[in-house]
């Protein structure tokens, strides 16, 4: 029936390859400012993938993913600054920290049947208390923040994540591509199907022999570990961490917004969402600046209205709609 010669799957592969090529070539084409925006899109896409595994695949709504981001950032940064252990090793510690924290949340949640809203509120409570805890932890700088040294002689130590804009750009691209790969592989696996079944109906999944608690823990661990890696990236890219920023609920919201706008539970939703929202945010800043509205709170005020508008307008996300339009997908998925 379709006029296109190629199957949706093939068209999807071609579209993805073209998109990937454009991203690889971008540093040689666009200026620094645009490149930094694409970098933010890529990081957003990666973190969105991580959140999407938990919520989109397994149906567990985490409203406190900033927790894992912050633990990852502080874990690797503290090891590097305080003990001289590089992030190539620190990233594993960061993941372990996040997984441990997610285990506590999961243990409380699953062991005591804390489900639905309660589970979500639990995730916020953990993220917020981490923020307060780190605010008061003088050894790591407390509320005044924790800083990574930026020394000229370290430059080029890529294994220590010391590099320039190009290096961090390609690292972000690698993260986003890796995130997509991991998501796709997991979604196609038995574990991924167990997650989908749990998302749809946990009781029915259990009756079909799915170990629901184990599968939920796996989703939590994968999601937390992936998010922690993003935290390591942010720490070494920005060279400073503030508890009030990294653990902030606004950060958790940013992480989940991409996949929600792009399409929760879809493979490409987090990418599409991030590549829509980040430029939109930048355009908003530019527009307000042009209008001379620089008062504190003005940007956030408009952003708040935008959030409400977007969520009212796009219930199932942009990607399913876009994919149908571009014939990149069958009816399914």
């Amino acid at each position: 029936m379709s006029a296109s010669p190629a199957s949706p799957g093939a068209r999807q592969t071609v579209a993805l390859a073209l998109f990937g090529l454009a991203l690889v070539a971008a540093p040689f084409v666009v200026d620094r400012y645009i490149l930094s925006i694409i970098l933010l899109c890529l990081i957003g896409a990666y973190l969105g993938q991580a959140w999407n595994i938990l919520m989109g695949f397994c149906g567990l709504l985490s409203l406190g993913h900033a927790l894992y981001l912050g633990l990852g950032a502080y874990g690797a940064a503290a090891l590097y600054v305080k003990f001289g252990i590089g992030p190539w090793l620190g990233v594993f510690v960061a993941m372990a920290l996040a997984v441990a924290a997610s285990f506590v949340i999961g243990w409380l949640g699953f062991r005591f049947r804390i489900e639905g809203v309660y589970f979500s509120l639990l995730t916020i409570a953990f993220a917020e208390s981490a923020r307060i805890g780190f605010d008061n932890w003088a050894w790591l700088g407390g509320a005044a923040g924790f800083f990574l040294p930026v020394r000229a002689e370290d430059f080029g130590q890529y294994w220590n994540l010391r590099g320039g804009p190009f290096f961090f750009y390609y690292l972000a691209l690698a993260l986003a591509a890796g995130g997509l790969f991991v998501s796709a592989r997991l979604r196609a696996s038995k574990l991924g199907h167990a997650w989908l079944a749990i998302r749809e109906d946990a009781q029915a999944a259990r009756a079909l022999g799915v170990n629901v608690t184990r599968a939920r823990f796996m989703a939590l661990f994968v999601s937390a570990a992936m998010t922690a890696v993003g935290g390591v990236y942010l720490a070494f890219w920005g060279n400073n961490i503030f508890p009030g920023q990294i653990f902030d609920m606004a950060h958790s919201i940013d992480i989940m917004l991409g996949p929600i706008v792009g399409g929760v539970g879809t493979l490409f939703g987090p990418i599409v969402g991030s590549f829509l929202l980040v430029p939109l945010g930048e355009a908003l800043i530019e527009a307000l600046r042009a209008l001379g509205l620089n008062a504190p709170g003005a940007k956030a005020l408009v952003y708040g209205f935008l959030l409400m508008g977007i969520i009212a307008a796009a219930p199932s996300g942009v990607w399913p709609w876009l994919a149908r339009r571009l014939r990149l997908q069958d009816r399914e998925q």
Partner: peptide
Amino acid sequence: ILLVGLSIV
């Protein structure tokens, strides 16, 4: 997201 948007506003 709706209510968080409202809270930001």
